[in-house]
């Protein structure tokens, strides 16, 4: 598969937490030749299985399909839309941005007049779709409809890409890449490619998927912050320095054996890697760790600048390192 064009296709398909049908359909079509079985569970997780030949460990690899966004809660007489946030929106980043609804209605997200940036919150924002009245707005939008910051992706200098929502469509693209790399490799254990839902609202989907799969080993593919932007808090993780092997984030401490195994695999295969300790934020890793009787978990992260803004930035070479590292690791243990 062409990584960049898959990434672009996934990014351009809006799918807020809890409304992942469209992206799921797209991913299903891409992953189906790489797996033996596919199913969608009650919450909407897409679970694709590559069957093993017998014995071996059950390995679960997960990337989330959902993204942050807005839900329409009320339509004013003026036709303006009141919204609630879905996931951790940064309003300073979203203010005056372009938005688009799940049904393709375009608009822009605006703070009320006289509200200072420090006081930005959902109640002080509205979406203007250009409607002249409540009636006109109601013809286009219903309460409960979702909006996202308008997706876009472009290539920048140095093999880097910029746009949104790279969190976590780039993880999904990496997971698809891994599935392709493992397609023809006979492994003892089953490998589960899970495209999870509702990560941005509390890592909900991975919890139920892991409960059903009961993996021995689970690895999460998600983005992580970096310490290489101006004024950033100290963090030993940089764009372009390779796959980030997670040691901990605020929600999880990864299994030490998996961390070691991933690092050794990277060294053996000369794959560029770095270690990641994220002091804030959590990922599906923690949900997979404590579902049911628990699993040994790890995570390989794609270093990403400006997460949750309208312009997230990644280095494509890091994504390639992530795909190479996880597929080699699975070959080793699977």
């Amino acid at each position: 598969m062409n990584f960049y064009s898959v990434l672009k296709e996934l990014c351009l398909c809006p799918s807020v937490s809890g409304r992942e049908q469209k992206i799921r359909e797209k991913i299903s079509a891409i992953v189906s030749p790489f797996c033996d079985e596919m199913r969608t569970d009650a919450l909407g997780n897409l679970i694709a299985v590559k069957k093993g030949v017998g014995g071996g460990k059950r390995v679960m690899l997960a990337a989330h399909m959902d993204e942050i966004g807005f839900m329409v809660t009320f339509i004013e007489d003026s036709g303006m839309l009141r919204v609630a946030t879905v996931g951790g929106i940064s309003f300073t980043a979203a203010a005056f941005g372009e938005v688009v609804s799940e049904n393709g209605v375009r608009g822009t997200i605006i703070p009320e007049e006289k509200v200072k940036p420090a006081d930005f919150k959902a109640d002080s924002f509205y979406i203007d779709i250009g409607a002249k009245s409540k009636k006109q707005a109601e013809a286009k939008v219903r309460i409960g409809d979702f909006f996202v910051l308008t997706p876009h992706v472009q290539k920048l200098a140095g093999g880097r890409v910029c746009g949104r929502p790279l969190d976590d469509r780039i993880g999904c693209a990496v997971l698809l890449d891994i599935a392709e790399r493992l397609r023809d490799k006979a492994l003892d254990g089953d490998v589960y490619y899970v495209f999870s839902v509702q990560e941005e609202v509390g890592c909900r989907g991975a919890m139920t998927a892991a409960f059903a799969i009961k993996p021995d080993i689970a690895i999460c593919l998600d983005v992580t912050a970096t310490g290489d932007t101006l004024g950033a808090s100290p963090m030993a993780c940089r764009l372009g320095d390779g796959a980030a092997v997670k040691i901990k984030d605020a929600s999880v401490i990864c299994n030490e054996e998996i961390v070691r195994g991933l690092c050794e695999t990277a060294q053996e295969n000369k794959i560029k890697y770095q270690k990641e300790i994220l002091l804030f934020g959590g990922t599906d890793t923690s949900s997979m760790q404590l579902a049911g009787a628990g699993a040994a978990v790890g995570a390989v992260s794609i270093p990403t600048r400006y997460i949750h803004s309208g312009n997230e930035m990644c280095d494509l070479s890091d994504a390639q390192s992530c795909a190479a590292l996880v597929s080699e690791y699975v070959k080793k243990i699977g």
Binding site: A42, N45, I143
Partner: peptide, 23 residues
């Protein structure tokens, strides 16, 4: 009617995440 504001939580929060997930 539909609820027109996002607030609060209830038993749905734990039920829907139980075991393999429940609609």
């Amino acid at each position: 009617q539909v609820k027109r504001y996002v607030s609060g939580g209830n038993d749905a929060g734990t039920i829907h995440k139980t075991a393999e997930g429940i609609k």
